[in-house]
């Protein structure tokens, strides 16, 4: 029993300490840049290889999942009392509410999160972060802020694209056999609630912030060498995924109930 309490105490303390260091990192990150031009350059670099480079995988996943969701929904709604176009309505809602913002963010947590954590981690162990610091550059701000801003701005665009492609995937599934595309189009336009899109985009922005800042945290404070960089990249993906899932629940409580 005593051991158990000891363990949970240690766990709690470690957790609070980690949270404290995370806040400290954030407070050092959002500072005035030494030179706006250089930060702008870093921003566009990050926008390119963290945001734009994710378009491909997001497109592929969205189309296929949209199609699968349509087939499954259709399969489950094989009831003569439910008109076919309700399938399209259900597909639209699941894509907008959950698939695009949450599932795509989880996928990005894997792709972008491990990228950020391993990049910053190897910069840490090869002393590049120390080199920035000695030059008088704030490494928190220079390395983390552009990434956070780039993804917070770009992920909503990515998610909107994902929503479109998801619906197109559903349309293609309908087209290739399950029911009339006419019904699908009709269903899509039924009872459209624009607030759902706002809800999804708010979620996306929060998730983008969590992915970038948490992964940066795990990369930035690596101690050791190549092995620790790998370990921390994994931790970054796991932690940002868990954070997304928890935040998803909290935001849904707040925004939809």
């Amino acid at each position: 029993m005593q051991n158990y309490f000891y363990f949970s105490d240690m766990f709690l303390i470690t957790w609070i300490r980690t949270l404290g260091r995370y806040w400290l990192m954030l407070s050092r990150t959002f500072r005035k840049p030494e030179n706006w031009n250089e930060y702008k350059k870093a921003f566009f670099r990050d926008l390119d290889h963290l945001g734009v480079d994710s378009l491909g995988i997001v497109a592929v996943i969205s189309i296929f999942v949209g199609a699968v969701v349509t087939i499954q929904t259709n399969y489950n709604l094989q009831d003569p009392l439910i008109p076919d176009y309700y399938v399209a309505l259900a597909v639209r809602e699941s894509i907008i509410l959950e698939f695009s913002p949450t599932i795509v963010s989880l996928i990005l947590a894997g792709k972008v999160g491990s990228n950020i954590a391993s990049t910053l981690g190897s910069m840490r162990v090869s002393e590049q972060i120390d080199a920035l610091e000695v030059m008088g550059v704030n490494p928190h701000a220079y390395l983390i802020m552009p990434k956070v801003v780039a993804l917070v701005l770009f992920n909503p665009i990515l998610i909107i694209i994902s929503m479109f492609l998801g619906v197109i995937g559903g349309y293609l599934a309908a087209y290739f056999g399950i029911f009339s595309t006419q019904d699908f189009i009709t269903g899509l336009q039924l009872e459209f609630n624009a607030y759902y899109v706002s809800y999804a985009l708010i979620k996306t922005v929060v998730f983008a912030f969590l992915i970038t800042s948490i992964s940066a945290f795990y990369g930035f404070f690596v101690k050791g060498g190549a092995i620790e960089v790998g370990v921390n990249a994994t931790k970054a993906v796991v932690s940002s995924s868990v954070a997304i899932i928890v935040a998803n629940y909290v935001l849904t409580q707040i925004l939809l109930v």
Binding site: E34, N35, N37, E38, R45, M123, S126, E127, Q128, D130, A131, E133, V134, M135, G136, V137
Partner: peptide, 30 residues
């Protein structure tokens, strides 16, 4: 720190930048 220059034992060059960009990094900033 803008008045300091430092050479690290392991170089610590910025590996995403080319040689010239490395050398003028501080000039770009300051």
């Amino acid at each position: 720190r803008t008045e300091m220059g430092m050479v690290f034992q392991g170089n610590a060059l910025f590996d995403s930048l080319n040689i010239e960009e490395n050398v003028i990094f501080a000039l770009n900033m300051f």
